[in-house]
């Protein structure tokens, strides 16, 4: 019997360990949500009672409102552009072979691997020379350069399942190359395109270093948070955080919904 108990204990330990890890990852998010409804000025134990004051306060804070608006604009712009560029890059990679293709793909794939601190500084230095500094358009452009990597990956993955004969079949049935692109390739990629839209919006919505460097006086919401955090303790942060969390989690979950994340192969056809 002793030989049976040991593996069971080991399994229990494994599950407890995993549960502990999930608590570690989830705890910070829960803390923000819980304290955003706390009447106390300083977030601590014991809880000061339920209150919507801080949520109301952020509605009246013009800077926060502007930051939200900026983030939505930047997020939308990034989502559209990144999905367009990511699709183009993924399709070019899928469809053609040419000299320098590895470099081309790398140029799109690598930006997320560069620390945003350095990227932000470099973008600020370069764009200020081009006179593009301090504008939301500049933030959109830079966020797109980073987010298109994720878009390309998502769409390229989808194209792996695109039957090699489908496009030639479309030409064969009277579709020009442009027509085939829009009537066959794009519809096939639709789930990945939608996922890419949400994911790049989330990436943009979460990014603060580049936005901070390049945006100048135009703050996005994470930049506003960064600036709030560097000042006095401000109970509004929890309320802002709750809204930001809700938005970004919704974006990421929606993105996952459309790609249908699966680990490994399934034996059952569901």
């Amino acid at each position: 019997m002793a030989t049976r108990i040991l593996p069971r204990l080991s399994r229990l330990a494994q599950h407890l360990f995993l549960a502990g890890l999930f608590v570690f990852i989830a705890a910070p998010m829960l803390v923000i949500v819980v304290f955003s409804f706390d009447a106390n000025r300083f977030p601590t134990i014991p809880w000061g009672g339920f209150s919507l004051d801080w949520h109301r306060a952020i509605l009246e804070d013009a800077m926060v409102r502007d930051a939200f608006l900026n983030s939505i604009l930047v997020g939308l712009g990034t989502a559209v552009l990144s999905t367009l560029l990511g699709f183009a890059a993924a399709y070019v990679d899928y469809r053609w072979r040419f000299f320098g293709k590895r470099a081309f793909v790398l140029l799109v794939a690598i930006p997320p691997a560069v620390p945003v601190t350095i990227l932000g500084m470099a973008m600020l230095a370069f764009l200020s020379r081009l006179g593009l500094f301090g504008r939301l358009e500049a933030v959109i452009a830079c966020h797109t350069a980073v987010a298109s990597s994720f878009s390309m990956a998502l769409i390229r993955l989808r194209l792996n399942d695109f039957g090699r004969d489908l496009e030639p079949a479309a030409w064969n049935l009277g579709a020009s190359h442009a027509a085939a692109l829009f009537t066959v390739v794009v519809p096939f990629c639709r789930p990945a395109l939608i996922a890419s839209f949400f994911l790049s919006a989330a990436v943009s919505f979460d990014e603060f270093m580049i936005a901070w460097f390049v945006g100048g006086v135009h703050e996005t919401i994470p930049v506003r948070i960064l600036n709030l955090l560097q000042g006095q303790v401000n109970p509004k942060i929890n309320a802002i955080g709750t809204v930001v969390l809700a938005v970004s989690i919704a974006l990421v979950v929606l993105a996952q919904w459309f790609v249908g994340v699966r680990v490994g192969k399934r034996t059952d056809p569901t």
């Binding site: 990852i25 910070p28 998010m29 955080g241 970004s248």
Partner: peptide, 17 residues
């Protein structure tokens, strides 16, 4: 799915937490 969420969201907020 749960692990993917924090990869793409709210790092700065979680540090604040």
């Amino acid at each position: 799915a749960f692990l993917v969420v924090p990869v793409f969201s709210s790092y700065i907020l979680r540090i604040y937490a």
